[in-house]
Amino acid sequence: MVFRRIPWLTFAAPRNFHVLVQVLVPWLVGGAVVLAVAGLYTSFFVAPPDYQQGNSYRILFIHVPAAWMGMFIYLLMAVYGVIHLVWRIRLADMMARSLAPTGALMTFMALWTGALWGAPTWGTYWVWDARLTSTLVLLFLYLGYMALRTAVDDRENGARAASLLALVGAINVPIIYFSVEWWHTLHQGMSVTLTSAPTMAPSMFTALLLMTGACWLYCAAIALRRAQVEVLEREAETQWVRDLIRDGDSRTWDRNATVADARGTIREEGRS
């Protein structure tokens, strides 16, 4: 079978991906540190205290980016899952797999910081608010995804099962969100909501943006690194990994990579 060369799949070949990660991760980590320092400085020393909540609101500079990342990463995971299911590109699955712990961590952070913020603001660590509840459900979805992966013996089958679960979960996330929102308005529980927050001072907005950027870069770096480790582990028998171990770092990539490389079907040639 002749595979048409698709340039955008260059980095889906394990070897090229490895090189890409080697190049990208230092920049991502550096960027994350710079943005985090700038963001933390702005949020602690530049942004003014809130006229209602005092200083306790500052935890939102971590809370909000974490909540965004938690949701976004689940969506991204589902997209990678679809790519894996449809085109059988293994790297997509490795990315999805690497994203899951980070996404779960972000979701957990969002819940935790939310609880800490809720204590002084609402007077309680936990309320069955629509957002809190759906974030909790999101955490369960992450946990189910990871648990299913580890429970299936065959790695490839586990990967496909988990990809399908991520897809089903992603379709359900908005349904869960709306039903919980609706449930909340029906039960008339809390009167304080995040949506009715007062308008933001520009410095607050800047701090939020910086922290969001830091979160993005951190998640990208950690997920890429984790996927890289996974790639090396799975490809441990291949020639290029052996060369890598023998010769140290290699920074050249194979520009002729094809979709077959990405699927790992012609890798057998390189196997000794």
């Binding site: 013996d153 065959d154 790695r155 057998e268």
Partner: peptide, 13 residues
């Protein structure tokens, strides 16, 4: 035909 199970090749060619 070639097939892998649990990460190791089962048969090939």
């Amino acid at each position: 035909l070639s097939c892998r199970r649990g990460g190791r090749p089962l048969f090939s060619g």
